[in-house]
């Protein structure tokens, strides 16, 4: 449905996006993950046609995307990072105005439908300035749904939202995706992307550093398992020294010691044999690697650094 080929964008001397390429299939829930300043918003701006790429191409259903591609723009629903609403107007007046820019027929009915979709049907006549942060975010999404877009593009839609509203937003988006809508979702919260998206692209410093399903991306990590050992009391120093000899990336915090092991079965057997009689081991837990671990591995920094 959407393809980006070697897309780049500069602002003066600063390169915001450099040589980014990926594809989004029809009906897919696609995540764009990266820390602040990674180039996600600039990439989205080029996808929705508010910015023109300096080089490369963006195609939506085979047609070139650019700021004057009105036909293509009408296929996209865009949810900007800010709650881009007229706060002194009612929810309904906002929808009426934005809907009229798309030349929609039977606008009042459509407004009522999208308000119902985001759970704000009983607040249609209320001014947006009286809404909570979560309600504003939901209305922000409703505006983008007015014209039945084929592709919904969301730029960090849950910033500053309480957990309840966040879950409501997730439920709405999952339902839309089940109904066949293609969704591109950007965030710097890996939990959100891990929950929602079937395929993920990771960006950092304007570059695409990984792209694929979560399983594909996890393969980028060395074949190591994370083992968390929980003791009844802090383990003795000689024991820690022994473990450190075998596992140089050992981390110890009070009663918890974390090590990376190559072979789970063999290493657990070795560790338990070494601990026998020397420390009171309460639990051993093997953690699955997360997107955060992948990002840390690829860039040397955390997603929220």
């Amino acid at each position: 449905m959407l393809s980006l080929r070697s897309v780049s964008k500069k602002f003066g001397a600063r390169t915001a996006v450099s040589d980014v390429s990926f594809e989004v299939q029809c009906g897919e829930f696609f995540g764009l993950l990266g820390p602040n300043g990674a180039g996600k918003t600039t990439t989205l701006s080029m996808i929705v046609g508010t910015l023109l790429a300096d080089s490369g191409s963006i195609n939506l259903e085979g047609a070139q995307m650019n700021p004057s591609a009105f036909g293509e723009k009408s296929k996209i629903g865009f949810v900007p990072q800010e709650t881009a609403l007229y706060e002194d107007l009612s929810a309904n007046a906002n929808l009426q105005f934005f809907g009229s820019l798309y030349g929609l027929q039977s606008l009042p009915e459509r407004c009522a439908t999208v308000l119902r979709q985001v759970g704000l049907e009983d607040r249609a006549a209320d001014r947006v300035e009286n809404f909570s942060g979560g309600m504003k975010r939901r209305l922000n999404i409703a505006v983008a749904l007015l014209h039945h877009p084929k592709l919904l593009v969301l730029d960090e839609p849950t910033v500053g939202v309480d957990p309840q509203s966040r879950n409501q937003i997730f439920d709405t988006l999952e339902q839309l995706n089940r109904d066949g809508m293609t969704i591109i979702y950007t965030s710097h919260y890996m939990e959100e992307v891990e929950r929602l998206c079937s395929r993920i692209a990771i960006m950092d410093g304007g570059k695409l550093i990984a792209c694929g399903t979560k399983a594909d991306i996890s393969k980028l990590l060395p074949d190591l398992n994370l083992l968390a050992l929980t003791f009844a009391e802090p383990p003795p120093a000689d024991l820690l020294a022994l473990l450190l000899l075998k596992y140089p990336d050992l981390k110890a915090e009070e009663t918890v010691v974390t090590v990376q092991v190559a072979n789970l079965e063999v290493d657990v057997a070795w560790i338990t044999s070494q601990l026998a009689g020397k420390a009171n081991l309460k639990a051993i837990r093997s953690d699955e690697s997360s997107l955060e671990d992948v990002f840390l591995h690829l860039t040397g920094k955390g997603l929220r650094d």
Partner: peptide, 10 residues
Amino acid sequence: GLLKRLTAAP
């Protein structure tokens, strides 16, 4: 960000 939303419209 309202103008950005407007520029995304057709």
